[in-house]
Design a binder for these strands. Structure first.
Ligand code: MN
Ligand code: MN
Ligand code: ZN
Ligand code: ZN
Lengths: 156, 156
DNA sequence: CTGATTATTGATACCAAGTATCACTGGACG
DNA sequence: CGTCCAGTGATACTTGGTATCAATAATCAG
């Protein structure tokens, strides 16, 4: 993603363990393992992938911890049309996502024009707008240099 | 949804049976039952809902028919973050959706500014844009007059 | 129309993703 | 430390969806 886009973002300190603690949850071994693994991945992931990476942590606990992190706003949950949702660390406040349809790489962006369009749409829609979501499907830079086929269906 | 928004749409003739035939698929009793039911519903629906409505048609066939219709571009498949995807008839070409987070009502809209923003983003994103998706979560007009709680989580 | 040819059907079994239970464990805190 | 309750994880279960495959029904050439 170009630097110009990222200029609009304001990075937050990301410490997933603290995000849990802030919600009054105990700092346990299992939770530390999960958050540590997520931070180590530094990319989008699925719940099952995390389970495989952490055989020492129970499946239920992995799912519960992810849910806590999403509730805390520390993780984004991305709907994947034919597959399990992916999660990525929320590094900036409100934002949208780019998803590479070949490798699944997820990027975050924030662009004021998108938000401005939303506000103008508000006048035209019958009802109260309470949120929105936007995903851009791309072939990412590194995938352009390869010749694999897409794993993720494009939902245009 | 206000009329001004809809002015940008160009309605297509919707005949789901023809959409299947155009793909070289046979016009069978089961498929006629499925497409008939979908057209009768005139709103968004889930696959399981359709199965319940059509006990005379096998589950596999319901799912297969829906997939054909999506492939044909006659149905939109909407990812619902914590639940089964919903489907709605695609009445206009490329478009986006409003989803009422209380009752699940789905609306279609098309707005040139959204597409213009997409084209401007293209210059800034590292990779090739191959599609995008956008959903606006609302409390629809009729739900504003009631006082139920939301069934659908808002994915902002 | 008739029969041959195939696509389609649907019961069944299966799979993947995620949740409910609940006896046990181990953080937190006095 | 010791208590206590939040947290854990094995297990069983649910939901959504797909693979199989023998039986059935569209389609079409003759
Ligand atoms: Mn936004
Ligand atoms: Mn669009
Ligand atoms: Zn990629
Ligand atoms: Zn509504």
């Amino acid at each position: 993603m170009a630097a110009s886009l990222m200029l609009e973002t304001e990075s937050r300190g990301i410490n997933l363990s603290n995000a849990l603690e802030d919600r009054g949850l105990r700092r346990t071994g299992a939770r530390t393992a999960v958050t540590g693994r997520i931070e180590h991945l530094s990319g989008a992931f699925t719940a099952e992938q995390l389970c495989r990476d952490l055989p020492g942590v129970g499946r239920a606990t992995v799912y519960r911890t992810i849910r806590h992190l999403v509730d805390a706003g520390a993780l984004c949950k991305l709907p994947i049309l034919d597959g399990a949702p992916m999660y990525s660390i929320a590094r900036v406040e409100h934002h949208h996502h780019t998803i590479c349809s070949r490798c699944g790489a997820v990027g975050e962006f924030r662009h004021s024009t998108v938000e401005r369009v939303m506000r103008s749409l508000a006048k035209e829609i019958d009802g109260d707008i309470i949120g929105h979501r936007m995903e851009i499907f791309i072939t990412c830079g590194s995938c352009l240099n390869e010749s694999t086929t897409g794993k993720f269906s494009v939902h245009v």
